[in-house]
Nucleic acid binder design. Structure first.
Lengths: 251, 251
DNA sequence: CGGGAAATTGACATTAATCAAACTTAGTGG
DNA sequence: CCACTAAGTTTGATTAATGTCAATTTCCCG
């Protein structure tokens, strides 16, 4: 691709943030906007497959996803991996590490990503001067909790088929509302190994389940990912209902 | 402590809060203490087995656990249940419901519990006037996220034996640091059905695993719960390390 | 053309779920 | 004090789900 570090990268000024304009994201008050603009220290651009943050590390920054997507995961000493959630445009990355001593999970880019960079040590300033934004941060943390609860329900109590259906349905839902992909996109660029590590299944078994769903015409595996053919049926299979969320804050 | 209703219940004034005194909990500044004292609207006492909060409900309150313990869970339409986490002294209960429209999970008391009651609609006032407390709330939400990540890793990637070992070890760790039970208590009052619903296993299988661990002398099932005989071995089995947490905030 | 990452497949082993029943204990009312 | 019940635990037999192993295939890329 293009040039790398030498030339100063073009940055989105917060005033023209593509997210703020997006339906579903709340707008800032002028003074909040001004603050966030100062608060934002730069942009981070990473390649697909790059590790953004590592378990056990102490990163002086945290981020908001501007574009692209990634996933959070944990490893066991023997290499077993569990993907705990995904991060899409508007989502925070690394806030936990800013509050606690060190990161308790790693983050990897699933596509190339662009992120806004904030400084950990200025976080408390935000709390002192912009309670509304502080409240929003807590809101986002609570939203993460809700998603994790759902993932836990899925991994703990759904069958393999239901899990795949649930994963696909929920990713599509989130992607649409975050503007990750254009409105009616149905391609999920993900690897079967990643699906397996999200659902707590083995790669081989995951493959067989996917194959079964493909035979039933609900989805199709294409190069580099999953094409959803029949979202409604998948949602029904997963016994899952779309979340009707209110206007959503972000940083 | 004015007289108000018929029989005014005895309440812990925040000034004498037994939690604040506890090692591991951070202390308040005087003005914070005064605020929290006003913020606290009362106490809620519930029986073992009672449902504190229900998925889908809109509760005008949220809580801090003063004593006892409970669990958060989600249900599927067909009755499958997943316990997502436990709540012990110092933990928040129902904050998520105060930030979002409605509760996304239910909460049940595992023992009789005593909780401090706060008003949802006064929450934003806390953010405006006590940034430090607001920061603490976010910290606690982040801590919940860390625990959920760990549970997800456990349910997704640990074997049944490891899961039981992990559950027991982590409960004991949390209980000790929250002062749920006296320092070296090793009795966990929990039902095998609840263990199963936490770990994503069936009741029968859970029982067989527990039996096996009992044969190996790692634990013993006694009336009303689990007595831990060999914590070190269980920790090793779970490949789990005790969290060395800094001084911890609460409300 | 060779190499590597991802997907696929079949055979087989292991783990966990389901079914059905018995057992234990505490509480309840006669 | 004794059925009787209910909740929780235990067990064995059986079935179903999922994991592991070992190839093979496909396709992209240098």
């Amino acid at each position: 691709m293009g040039a790398d570090t030498a030339a100063p990268p073009v940055q989105y000024p917060c005033e023209m943030c593509p997210l703020r304009a997006r339906k579903g994201f709340r707008d800032f008050y002028p003074e909040e906007l001004a603050f966030v603009s100062r608060f934002k220290k730069g942009e981070l651009s990473v390649q697909k497959g790059a590790t953004l943050l590592m378990e056990g590390s102490r990163n002086p920054h945290f981020y908001t996803v501007l574009s692209g997507w990634g996933f959070r995961y944990k490893l066991m000493p023997d290499g077993r991996r569990q993907i705990v959630n995904f991060a899409m445009p508007g989502d925070l990355v690394g806030l936990q590490g800013s509050l606690m001593e060190e990161m308790q999970h790693s983050v990897e880019a699933l596509s190339s990503m662009l992120l806004c960079v904030f400084e950990r040590k200025e976080l408390y300033g935000l709390y002192r001067h912009f309670p509304r934004l502080a409240y929003d941060l807590t809101w986002m943390a609570a939203r993460e909790e809700v998603m994790l609860d759902e993932n836990l329900l899925s991994v703990g109590r759904r069958t393999a088929v239901e899990r795949v259906a649930y994963l696909v349905a929920s990713i599509l839902d989130r992607a649409a509302s975050s503007g990750l992909w254009p409105k009616n996109a149905t391609e999920i660029p993900i690897t079967q190994q990643q699906v397996a590590d999200t659902l707590g299944l083995s790669l081989v078994h995951t493959n067989k389940i996917i194959r079964k769903l493909a035979e039933r015409g609900l989805l199709k595996w294409v190069e580099g990912g999953c094409r959803v053919m029949d979202l409604k049926s998948l949602q029904r299979l997963a016994r899952w209902e779309e979340s009707t969320l209110e206007s959503r804050p972000f940083l």
